[in-house]
Design a protein around this nucleic acid. Structure first.
Length: 240
DNA sequence: AACTGGACCAACCGCATATAG
DNA sequence: CCTATATGCGGTTGGTCCAGT
């Protein structure tokens, strides 16, 4: 029903491209405190030079506390294959059956791995569509036909109850200034394991800047996990 | 060592749909 | 009911990395 699509934002006034750690922190901090009832207004309220769409995507695909990182298990891949066989490119519906996985991630896995794999094996295997249930948006499974399936009934993610510090403007500036230092390390950590000592040092620096260390308080794991997805809890690095 | 092509994935684009006024 | 706006979704793109040459 959409008539004439208004541009979602003024592209000349917003940042595009990869998100920096400081932007991630700012977004997470805001959502943890205020939720995300209005994506369009969120960037301004959070002090982000991003469009609401971009914030939503970043949150859903990367920053949500329940997002599962790492390789898909064979079980997950089987579920994707079965569901795709049954309902097609309904990535969000497929994602609703795989707790912690996002539609974008599933779409990527399908396009880069599973499609090719199935193509390869298609000559050797045959069979009708899998009978499977579809998860509705309420996270209850809808029978697409009359047979039971392995489709999950996972609950919708509950945002982690993380206590977040109230960061003031100065501290955000500090974070922004750390970007050039943090970003390459975060990127690298996404690919390979950064030495524990190094991660610990940066985490400590960050916590010092945020004034957490003095109170015996620490960065919530949700934040460090988002910044260094492949790294164990930062508590490990800090020797806690 | 330098180059190249493919794989991977985060982010963007634009249409569809939902909803408010 | 009509229109405007916000959000959701799926397709696509572009940057980065890495293996092969």
């Amino acid at each position: 029903m959409g008539r004439g699509r208004a541009p979602c934002c003024d592209k000349t006034k917003v940042r595009t491209g990869p998100w920096s750690p400081a932007e991630d922190l700012r977004l997470m901090n805001f959502i943890q405190k205020h939720g995300h009832s209005n994506w369009r207004a969120l960037p301004k309220q959070a002090g982000l030079l991003r469009c609401g769409k971009s914030c939503r995507l970043r949150w859903i695909n990367y920053l949500r506390p329940d997002v599962k990182r790492g390789n898909f298990t064979p079980e997950e891949e089987n579920t994707i294959i079965q569901l795709h066989n049954s309902i097609g490119n309904k990535w969000s519906k497929i994602a609703s059956c795989l707790p912690g996985r996002t539609d974008n991630e599933i779409k990527n896995v399908w396009n880069t791995h599973l499609k090719k794999r199935l193509k390869k094996s298609s000559s050797t295997s045959s069979g009708g569509p899998e009978k499977i249930k579809e998860c509705s948006t309420e996270n209850s499974c809808i029978e697409l036909d009359d047979s039971p399936s392995s489709c999950c009934l996972s609950n919708s993610p509950k945002e982690a109850a993380v206590s977040s510090s109230d960061l003031d403007g100065d501290l955000w500036e500090v974070l922004d200034s750390l970007d050039p230092i943090l970003e390459p390390r975060r990127r690298q950590a996404g690919k390979v394991q950064v030495e524990g000592e190094e991660v610990g040092r940066w985490l400590q620096l960050l916590e010092n800047e945020l004034g957490l260390a003095n109170d015996g308080d620490h960065l919530p794991d949700i934040i460090t996990t988002a910044m260094w997805p492949n790294s164990p809890s930062h508590h490990h690095y800090l020797g806690i």
